[in-house]
């Protein structure tokens, strides 16, 4: 892969994601104040001791933003990894086994997708106790339906290619066929899909937190911070917009990278892709 072939927009996206991840990892080092420390008056304007001002309880907004990156990225990433693994395993199983298994999985998936994700999440979260792992699990299961659909389509697309048939005629086992013949050729679209799911997870988690059903206070997370500070808006206090902008920026960065990956994918059949 040629570094120079990566367009500027993708570089911006990669840089943005890298900054967010660095914040998440080194939060205690970077953040000027503690996550839950009340350090000043409420809703102080930006500047002075507090670079971005303070929030509705007088906590430093910048510090909470940095710690929030940690929670938001961790939960969204965990949900995405889980949903992706689940969706990929089930979809490849459906594509490889075919027949009854495929029908069963696919029809059940159709049923799951007949209910809008947010509504489904609201119904389920109304019943389940509030735990972080439950939140991650619910997000992952709901999102895996989308992964299943695309994974199955991609796997079937490649599975009917003649080089896969040639491998079967050679007598290769299923594992070789999946890992050496199919997977390398689906990597690009699946990577793009992973990015897309990650961006969606960030937005979805933020939405749930904003509605008060995601991450519970006092832990900092971007969606929850918007909820905490939303009452300030009416007084012209922009504290709620800061975490909102953080969510939007991260999602945009991820989408910029995804956009580039997708364009690369579309040249898969003609061009050589990477190498």
């Amino acid at each position: 892969m040629n570094l120079r072939s990566i367009p500027l927009s993708a570089w911006i996206g990669i840089a943005g994601i890298a900054i967010a991840i660095l914040c998440a990892i080194f939060a205690p080092v970077i953040a000027p104040y503690g996550e839950r420390d009340v350090v000043g008056e409420i809703w102080l304007p930006a500047g002075g001791d507090f670079l971005l001002g303070t929030d509705n309880l007088g906590r430093d907004l910048l510090s909470r933003l940095i710690y929030g990156a940690r929670t938001t990225i961790f939960v969204a990433l965990a949900a995405t990894v889980l949903s992706f693994s689940l969706g990929m395993i089930l979809s490849f199983a459906a594509a490889v086994m075919g027949g009854f298994v495929d029908q069963l999985f696919s029809r059940f998936n159709d049923l799951m997708m007949a209910i809008p994700t947010l509504i489904f999440a609201l119904v389920v979260l109304a019943v389940l106790p509030q735990h972080l792992w439950i939140l991650i699990l619910v997000m992952a299961v709901l999102d895996s339906t989308r992964v299943f659909r695309i994974g199955r389509a991609v796997a079937l697309d490649v599975a009917v290619m003649e080089f896969v048939e040639a491998a079967r005629l050679r007598g290769e086992g299923s594992l070789w066929i999946i890992f050496r013949e199919i997977l390398p050729n689906t990597l690009s679209p699946l990577l793009a899909e992973f990015g897309l799911r990650f961006a969606f997870s960030i937005l979805f988690l933020s939405t749930l937190s904003f509605l008060g059903l995601g991450i519970q206070p006092p832990a900092a997370d971007w969606g929850g911070m918007v909820k905490d500070n939303k009452d300030g808006i009416i007084f012209g206090i922009s504290a709620a917009l800061v975490p909102g902008a953080a969510i939007a920026t991260l999602a945009i960065c991820v989408n910029l990278v995804v956009d580039w990956l997708m364009k690369r994918t579309s040249s898969l059949k003609g061009g050589r892709g990477d190498a």
Partner: peptide
């Protein structure tokens, strides 16, 4: 592409 990445509540509060 940017608009797709914006959460609804962010747009809402910006407008407000």
């Amino acid at each position: 592409l940017a608009a797709i990445s914006l959460p609804e509540f962010f747009i809402g509060y910006l407008l407000i």
